[in-house]
Nucleic acid binder design. Structure first.
Lengths: 209, 209
DNA sequence: ACGGAGAGTGAGCAAGCGCTTAGGCCCTGT
DNA sequence: ACAGGGCCTAAGCGCTTGCTCACTCTCCGT
């Protein structure tokens, strides 16, 4: 837990290391615009305007509008993958690792719900090659969660007859947080993460231990 | 279970009673186009083309492209609401009613995943008034699920400390089916409904009874 | 002092957008 | 026989879109 306090979920600890300054402003502007209206309803003029520059300036830093989406989608997917891989490779019981995965994955989707919304719901707007690249990262994420569930099922720690189906359900539950979460709601990202970790442990039959 | 066999989920038992014939063809064409590419990326020419008519013909049956989305969104939301209300008002224990709700709600989202995708993920493209109308239906859906959970929590049938949070999680899990389900996948709508009903019962602590 | 690279702008192009208009075909009631 | 409404099309209007171009400004090494 380092420096954050990111009011709207599209902030520094995700895009902080992009240079030059104008390129970073463009990315965060695009994240907000894409999350609010969707990729296709966002104009390059809108992005440039939010970043405080003229429409033409966008093309100095990015070749096309789609490349801007690609940058957001790729980095976002990589961050999400790192989170579940860290949980998969952590120590402890399968239940602890699953709880860790859900807690941090959900917290990321809530905290960065603006970015996450673009990452999870705008990938259909990517070009063919970029789309395939992102799908590969998603498969790895799916694999990491499934690995935890398989471990727990094998050791008898979980009661999961359909590992593949349960994997889909767990990921589904977490991803959908990006759709409904908003900062003006009742719960904090930490609270949602904690609640969801508990719900998922019950789902896989690990709560009574 | 009446006449169905709806190959792609945008079919007869949802839009079958729209007249005249051309209007129905336009709606189903729009459902497919919106689900595939999203509302903003779909052109009126594309919709008309899929329906086998000229672009201008669209405006004989619908005032605007947005009104087409509104029709789809409103009818779809109403159908979804009916499903959970029927489960809420059914007889049996809270667990039976919850299982019924999840099973049929999930099955609907899987069977009509094309329609459901538009219903669940394109409502942001609606105009202000239409959006408000649809949000009201969604609140009613949320209320119906919460009512079942509250019943079970009051009678001690469920173990749910946070009813509001659990309601969000249950609905979230069901809705997200529309995003990932496809007919070329491993599971049928019935199978996913059954699996999810079981997972949700465990989530609310009702499985061990 | 000054040439060249990097970063930015104002104007605007070609294409595509949602939607309208003028007119034609065909069915129906009288 | 024929007026009138319902349904449809070809053509196209006004506008916005993603993106480009010619150009300017500022900074920096020599």
């Amino acid at each position: 837990m380092d420096a954050e306090a990111d009011k709207d979920g599209a902030g520094a600890e995700v895009w902080g290391d992009i240079t030059p300054d104008a390129a970073r402003r463009l990315v965060t502007a695009a994240v907000h615009a894409f999350a609010e209206r969707g990729y296709h309803a966002t104009t390059t003029r809108d992005i440039a305007g939010r970043a405080g520059m003229s429409p033409a300036a966008l093309y100095i830093h990015y070749k096309t509008k789609e490349e801007l989406l690609y940058q957001i989608s790729k980095v976002g997917h990589q961050r999400a993958l790192e989170i579940v891989e860290r949980a998969r490779d952590a120590g402890g019981t399968s239940a602890e690792r699953l709880a860790h995965a859900v807690r941090s994955f959900v917290r990321w989707h809530a905290e960065h719900h603006t970015t996450a919304r673009v990452v999870q719901y705008e990938l259909g707007a990517l070009g063919e090659e970029h789309h395939a690249e992102v799908i590969a990262i998603r498969k790895a994420t799916d694999g990491a969660v499934r690995a935890i569930l398989e471990d727990g099922a094998r050791t008898g720690e979980f009661d999961v007859p359909d590992v593949r189906g349960a994997t889909v359900a767990v990921l589904s539950l977490c991803i959908d947080v990006a759709r409904w979460f908003n900062t003006r709601g009742r719960s904090t990202p930490d609270e949602v993460g904690e609640l969801y970790a508990g719900l998922v442990l019950r789902m896989v039959g690990a709560a009574s231990r």
